[in-house]
Amino acid sequence: MKPDVPSCYPLRKARVHEACGAGATGFAAIMAAHLSGPVLWLREGWRAETLNPVGLAAFLDPARVLVAQVRDQTEGLAVMEEALRDGAVPLVVIELGQPLDLTPGRRLQLAAKAGNSTGLCLIPEGMGSNAAETRWRCAPVFDADPGPGDSTLQSWEIIKNKSGTLGAWHVRWDWAARRLDVVPPAGE
């Protein structure tokens, strides 16, 4: 069977989505690469772990990325709501450390709808919010037989979907063409 691109991909616009797992950052970078225009990336300023623009350059032009350093998660959510409602940035990514309540989750959804921009929360595993439109579990997969070039094999699993079905795919990011390829899982 020839695998096709997930029907719920790219992410539905004007909604807030969630991604968890070790490959969530890569997932966010690929989503940003599919959009044009600036991307706002919210992170808590005290965290030592940073996004590396040199690595990000394989996905999209790092000049498109604006990073906002926020004090804590509450401030981050407030900034995200304002940015989503404004609609000047088509994608807002936030790194969350604590579970999201229904109220802030719903507020983000409404803001995204008002501004027609997409939100993406990078969450720790198992801390999803009920308000999210879709939730993806992204994990890198060991590729025993890598093709030419340094492609990365990932498994994307959609574990929550408000308007569609669940599913799982193995995908590969093509560095040269900057394109997402869906590959059949090994062993099938």
Partner: peptide, 26 residues
């Protein structure tokens, strides 16, 4: 678009400080 983005940066800057909205330079 540039104007709108700058407006957004100004507005977010009143909340978290204008220095905290950053970009990467090589």
């Amino acid at each position: 678009r540039g104007d709108r983005l700058d407006d957004l940066i100004s507005r977010l800057g009143t909340r978290i400080g204008l220095e905290n909205i950053q970009r990467f330079l090589p």
